[in-house]
Write a protein that binds this DNA or RNA. Structure first.
Length: 625
RNA sequence: GGUUCCGUAGCUCAGUUGGAUAGAGCAACAGCCUUCUAAGCUGUGGGUCGGGCGUUCGAGUCGCCCCGGAAUCACCA
């Protein structure tokens, strides 16, 4: 072990990467393991005792103290039967003697801070810088087949900010899990049937005068959404009139002619009546065209899209079959129910008395269809926390129906996006439209860039591409940096920032490094990894190496926690650290060639890690900005 | 009322399995471009981590009880 640490054999360093150990959710990289083992040895030698792994807590030393790794001494006191200070000193002395990489130590209160040699950090850095695949360390031993369901739009209105959060989370999750070696498939369930769809169909029939997205120049989903709004407006007017005539509010809602017609239309649709089905197909196709465009702008896509209009039938079969098997029961009115009281839940209706399916019916069918298609270990449903109960029921229900794999159905529950004055409501028109927001972000990116006087000498096409990357980078980062399961507030009045903890800040750091490399090329300077070890790093550079070392660990933790936010915050931290370095030190102007080479490679790895991290978030990096 | 989630600086948010003096950004103020991109860097001010009790050598983090907010408890989706 001691010898291994001194070894400069590249094979060892390769081995280092294979030695990222994840035990019980904990992450350890070899250096920590080496120290840990040596401390066990110390406890055995000094105190004649065996220390359990959990008692030996190694962490990175906080910046305000001298050292690289820190042992929390308190848990060891039970063996040493001595003061924290003395115990720390004893173990520190033992480690310094046994581990050449440990060049010194200090004890502050109950913390033993170990100093690691620069040489060791450089060895580590050389190996990482030479590694082509930054995710190789992240790969799990047992890859799973995982489906990520996200987006799940209704086909009666365009996407809004809430959907954006959903899409970004789902897509990022896909990339994070894939990077860890899982076989991940992106799926979508489209809510393309039901009374809400009939509403916009009916309104178009009555008030549309045959206009189309083409004839009006509108995006398809907005076009259809317009008729959904029309329906709600006219319906409301009818209700008001009925109430004026003395009808009760509830009765008015129920008996308004428009609502009755919508219901009739649903029945005709379910009966497969050609005229209705054709209209449904046409209007849905308009919506899909619109969605396609929004998805394309957001940079998300799907491996397989499921449609509720198909899976609800499978769901109904499952329900009927379970009824025959007496797993379910029916009421006198022919509605079908599940009794989940034994599981701590309630009774749940699975089919209406008129024989039509409810929301959860299609989820049963969709899950089974997906399992037939993919034999997945897990399906991760990216769905808002307002549906927590629904997914609790879904899993319990599927277990009850005998699907053992239902344990793999995971609700990735994320928080709502709220406006300063509360929740977004489609019907009240208080949503932030996805297309509008994306367009505004690109415009803001243009304004900011122009004001800063950047990008002169670029073609309009190149500029548009850069503004797109920056605008979307700002938007995506703004949303993904927040812990997914928390609600977040979006203030439309204050535009999304481009300074500080933002996407553009990280993109800017990347672009700066790109600029350094271009300059290096002009100067004829080539980075040379084989010359790395002749450089003597400073403290800031070691700090950067330490931060870079945390990247694969962060990815693994983000995968385990389903949290793109952890990646986002890591990228920010790295950018901030790098910008300090960039400000304080000259790279190409450094006269010591070994140091110049080292700084260039350090910058190169930083840009690669930033780029990889942002890629996990679905954020593109501009080469210049 | 039951269940679940949230509460950290004026605002928006970080804070790894409990560890040292709770951190960023925005906003405010004061500095730094003849040198690799100033979308940057440095500094100042700003906190009863909603409140209390408990567990522990140690609690923003774990447990219990309150307070405040959100969601949900439909033959809606």
């Amino acid at each position: 072990m001691v010898l291994i640490l001194l070894s400069r054999d590249l094979c060892f360093i390769r081995q280092y990467f294979k030695n990222v150990i994840f035990a019980g959710g904990k992450t350890e990289i070899l250096m920590e393991s080496v120290i840990k083992n040596c401390i066990k040895e110390a406890v055995k030698t000094l105190y004649n005792n065996d220390a359990e792994d959990e008692l030996i807590q190694i962490q990175e030393t906080r910046k305000d103290f001298r050292g690289d790794f820190t042992l929390v001494v308190f848990p060891i006191l039970r063996f040493s039967k001595n003061t924290p200070e003395q115990t720390g000193k004893d173990i520190g002395a033992y480690l310094s003697e046994k581990l050449p990489a440990v060049t010194g130590f200090n004890v502050v209160k109950g913390f033993l801070n170990l100093e690691i040699s620069d040489r060791w950090w450089m060895e580590y850095f050389r190996a990482t810088a030479g590694e082509e695949d930054l995710f190789s360390v992240c790969r799990v031993d047992n890859p799973e087949t995982i489906l990520v369901e996200y987006s799940s739009p209704n086909t009666n209105k365009p996407l809004h900010l809430g959907h954006i959060r959903n899409n970004l989370l789902g897509y990022s999750l896909f990339r994070i899990l894939s990077s860890c070696g899982h076989n991940v498939y992106k799926t979508n369930i489209v809510n393309d049937r039901g009374i809400h769809i009939c509403k916009s169909m009916l309104a178009w029939q009555k008030y549309g005068n045959g206009e189309t997205p083409e004839s009006t120049g509108m995006k398809g989903d907005h076009f259809v959404g317009k008729y959904y709004v029309t329906f709600e407006r006219e319906y409301k007017a009818q209700i008001e009139e009925l109430v004026l005539q003395g009808t009760g509010e509830a009765e008015a809602r129920n008996s308004a002619p428009l609502m009755q017609e919508a219901r009739e239309m649903l029945v005709r649709w379910e009966a497969g009546e050609k005229e209705v089905v054709d209209l449904w197909r046409t209007m849905n196709s308009w919506v899909y065209e619109g969605f396609e465009e929004t998805y394309r702008m957001l940079g998300v896509d799907f491996d397989k899209i499921y449609y509720e209009s198909e899976t609800y039938k499978t769901g109904k079969e499952i329900v009927l079959s379970a009824l025959r098997d007496k797993i379910l029961y029916s009421h006198n009115d022919n509605s079908i129910w599940a009794d989940l009281t034994a599981e701590g839940l309630d009774h749940k209706v699975l089919q209406r008395s008129d024989g039509t399916a409810v929301y959860i019916t299609q989820d049963l069918g969709t899950a089974v269809a997906r399992h037939n298609d993919y034999r997945f270990e897990k399906t991760i449903y990216v769905v808002g926390n307002e549906q927590n109960y629904h997914f609790q029921v879904l899993r319990v229900l599927m277990k009850k129906l005998g699907y053992k794999w239902a344990d793999g159905l995971i609700h990735f529950s994320y928080g709502m996006v709220e406006l300063p004055d509360g929740k977004m409501k489609s019907r009240e028109g208080t949503t932030v439209d996805a297309d509008d927001l994306i367009r505004e972000m690109k415009e803001t990116a243009r304004d900011v860039s122009m004001e800063l006087g950047k990008l002169s000498g670029f073609s309009e096409e190149e500029k548009a591409d850069i503004f797109r990357k920056i605008g979307l980078g700002a938007l995506k980062y703004y949303i993904l940096k927040v812990d997914p399961h928390k609600n977040m507030t979006f203030n439309p009045g204050e535009s999304i920032d481009f300074n500080g903890n933002t996407g553009p800040f990280i993109q800017y750091t990347y672009a700066r490094i790109g600029s350094v490399y271009r300059k290096a090329g002009e100067m004829g300077i080539e980075p040379d990894i084989s010359q790395l070890m002749s450089a003597r790093p400073g403290q800031k550079e070691i700090d950067l190496i330490k931060l870079l070392r945390r990247f694969p660990v962060t990815v693994r933790e983000a995968a385990a926690a389903y949290s793109p936010a952890m990646i986002a915050n890591y990228c920010y931290e790295l950018s901030k650290e790098y910008n300090q370095f960039y400000h304080d030190f000259s790279i190409l102007g450094e006269e010591n060639k070994a140091l110049r080479n080292f700084r260039l490679i350090l910058s190169g790895l930083t840009s690669r890690v930033l780029s990889a991290g942002m890629w996990l978030l679905g954020i593109e990096m501009p080469e210049r900005m």
